[in-house]
Computed example of a mutant assay.
Amino acid sequence: MTLDEDELLNHLMRLVGIRAPIVAAAVLQLIVELRRAMIFDEDAVERIKEAIVRAAVQVRPSHTHVADFEIQLRTKLDRLFAASEAPRP
């Protein structure tokens, strides 16, 4: 079974821990569109991901270690952005 694009996006957002999927999908699509229009460069996207990590660390489960949580979240965000920016068929 393969995941279609929307299912993959939804799955990755849940993995990242984004709680408001409609807003998250809209923000993610906005970032992708601004990248495609060359308004956002890679540094801007990295700053956005860093802001997401900083906010998520504040509400992480108390049983998780901060450094481990940050590494896992950054990895998941990288996958999410890579999947969102992949060329569409």
Rank of each mutant, 00 (worst) to 15 (best):
I31K: 05
D41L: 04
S84L: 07
R19K: 09
A83Y: 05
L8E: 13
L34F: 09
D6Y: 03
D41C: 04
R60Y: 03
L28K: 00
I22A: 15
N10G: 11
T64Y: 13
H65M: 07
Q29G: 07
R88G: 12
Q72M: 08
E42H: 09
A37R: 06
V32H: 03
D78H: 06
E5F: 05
R35Y: 04
T64V: 14
A20W: 04
E46V: 12
V53T: 02
F81Q: 02
E85M: 15
P21E: 11
H63A: 14
E33R: 02
N10L: 10
A55P: 01
H65E: 13
A20S: 12
H11F: 11
M13R: 09
E70T: 02
H65V: 08
S84T: 04
S62T: 12
T2G: 08
T64K: 14
T75A: 11
E70G: 01
A82P: 03
R14H: 15
Q72R: 11
V57M: 06
A55V: 07
E85V: 09
H11K: 15
G17D: 14
Q58W: 02
R60K: 15
A20D: 07
R54T: 08
E5K: 08
A20F: 07
V32N: 06
P21V: 05
F81R: 00
D43C: 06
L28V: 05
A82E: 15
D6K: 13
E33H: 01
K49Q: 14
A82W: 06
P87H: 12
E85T: 15
A24L: 02
A56C: 06
A37C: 08
A51Y: 01
G17N: 04
V16S: 04
M1Q: 08
R88T: 14
I22S: 09
R36P: 01
